[in-house]
Nucleic acid binder design. Structure first.
Lengths: 333, 333
DNA sequence: CTGAAAGCGCTTACAG
DNA sequence: CTGAAAGCGCTTACAG
């Protein structure tokens, strides 16, 4: 009971007068074991709080029971809440399957940190996120034959991924804005390279099509990544008399909000604004900004489950999550 | 060269016609080895890109070469940049010593996630942070005899820690504000339970004493943790005709800034404000807010080095970092 | 259903 | 300076 010496499988075998193989099999449930001996072992184990050495088990099975998570070095600037929730989803699911999570931070190009985990055989598989790494990492992992799951989408049929249903979510938010009577919405985004922006754009367009509202391509702007660019875009938007601004993500939205504030334009009285991606910056902004909220934790859980399925040799399929919410706030009142 | 089969120490021994012990010793440098054989082994290793199995090595040495990092579940709300920088410092230092970092997320009370790492013997030591966990975690780790390092301070002589020189930093910032001619500064903080707030207060007081400026205790407020409380405090501050507000951390500061904005008070024309802890909220605030910036990465590196020293049996001592900066911004112009 | 034995890939006293 | 052997704490074919 209260003794805190560390038992080994051999100790249990000796105390119970059976072999180590039998103890091992009783624990794992593999092979045939009589109910009676199995229970004896299990009882002993729980009453003596025996914990197998995951390390030794792993060595024997050629596994580590560790998962690697690749984090971008600048995750806190981009979307702290996303990574936090994602991590907690991953850790939770991993723990539930007796796995632990190792982290590796990279600027998205530098492979050395990820490489460590792989060549040192510290992990059984890896989770990366589209926003954290570029194709090199994917390429590296494929080449090294390391099982991995991508958070975000990939056109590559060999890569397993989980993603938010960005298109559908954006369609829905746009739909709601159209229902509210907005008719000339500008769409403003960052890099057109980001695959996610294509999905978001599609959602925006589809909502218009479905309701038969025309889109003015003069109100479509990409590559808005710094204040000057945002200011220029805002000028055009005002000149074109748009009745609202839809931003593809929270950082673009923060830029636009700053511009509006500088020009002393009242939100939502003079112009409305919404974002396809939420963050504290928008939630606590004055006024608070309407946006989409995705369930990052669910995304993490899903990615982890997929990776575990891969590792276990179970059927694995990509997963598109519909767990988003449209958060209507002051900015579109 | 280009072959990608995984070598074991036994393969090397066979190919080189020596024993595995000799190979092992050549790599580790332990024991006596002739320069000649050592070089042969090392050459073989680098030309064949041999990577020892850290897992097997660990099992033989009763080590894991893993460090555990306990993260608070809500780190992204509190200070994402702090944890990010800290993590990157830890990961970097760990990697430099052939260690990897496992994470464990907890709400600060729930020990189960941390317990996993310990009872499963997945890590050699653990890094926790004062802002992430309460005394239970410390207590648990002490009891389990797991080497650990605390980021933040502890009065417990058995606890190893690294911390910022909060008192000195706050003294310096206050000093500068006094030099600028401010004479009636209010000091506003959150929970008085937080040990760090005591240090910050001391720094504030010391600066006043050293310059012979009296402190009005009517201008000292703690437990300011939500908007209503902040509004009340602001009323008093204005009534008492303070010429500035010094906040003990960024969230208190954000609360005060919101209040000021609501009352349409101009910063810094009508009242100045500064914070003892920086974050993006203050940096990007309009106007930007003067504050202290601590070097979280250095803190992480330092914590990691201390833990590694502990694990290696090297002399280990607590470390107080002086790497802070006073960032003067618009709010105190 | 159970056990003896070999194996996972290293390290390290011990002997020479 | 080097090697044979035992050991780290598990698993798992193989034989019974």
């Amino acid at each position: 009971m209260g003794d805190n010496r560390i038992y080994r499988i051999e100790d249990i075998a000796r105390e119970l007068g059976i072999s180590t193989s039998t103890v091992s099999r009783s624990i794992s449930g593999k092979g045939r074991i009589s109910q009676a001996t199995r229970e004896r072992v299990l009882d002993f184990i729980s009453s003596h709080d025996y914990r197998p050495s995951v390390q030794a088990k792993g060595l024997a099975q050629n596994k580590t029971y560790n998962l690697g998570l690749v984090l971008p070095l600048d995750f806190s600037e981009r979307s702290p809440a996303f990574f936090k929730d994602c991590m907690s989803g991953i850790c939770e699911t991993a723990a539930g399957n007796n796995y632990d999570v190792m982290i590796s931070m990279t600027d998205g190009q530098d492979l050395s940190q990820i490489s460590r985990l792989v060549v040192n055989r510290k992990v059984d598989g890896i989770i990366i996120s589209r926003s954290a790494v570029d194709w090199r990492v994917e390429h590296f992992l494929k080449e090294k034959n390391v099982p991995f799951v991508l958070i975000g989408s990939s056109p590559d049929p060999d890569v397993f991924f989980v993603d938010n249903n960005n298109q559908e979510a954006c369609r829905e938010l746009t739909d709601i804005l159209l229902m509210k009577g907005m008719r000339r919405m500008a769409l403003v985004g960052g890099s057109a390279q980001h695959r996610v922006n294509e999905d978001r754009k599609q959602g925006f367009f589809r909502a218009h099509q479905e309701l038969g509202v025309p889109i003015d391509l003069n109100l479509f702007f990409m590559e808005v990544d710094r204040p000057v660019k945002a200011a220029e875009v805002l000028e055009k938007i005002l000149r074109e008399k748009a009745d609202g601004i839809v931003c593809m993500d929270d950082s673009v939205c923060a830029l636009m909000v700053d511009c509006l504030r500088e020009k002393r334009l009242q939100i939502p009285q003079e112009i409305r604004i919404a974002s396809f991606y939420d963050s504290v910056r928008l939630e606590y902004n004055i006024p608070s900004v309407t946006s989409l909220r995705f369930d990052a934790k669910e995304l993490g859980q899903s990615a982890c489950r997929l990776l575990l399925a891969l590792l276990g040799g179970y059927p694995a399929k990509n997963h598109i999550l519909d767990g988003y919410q449209v958060i209507l706030r002051e900015s579109t009142k």
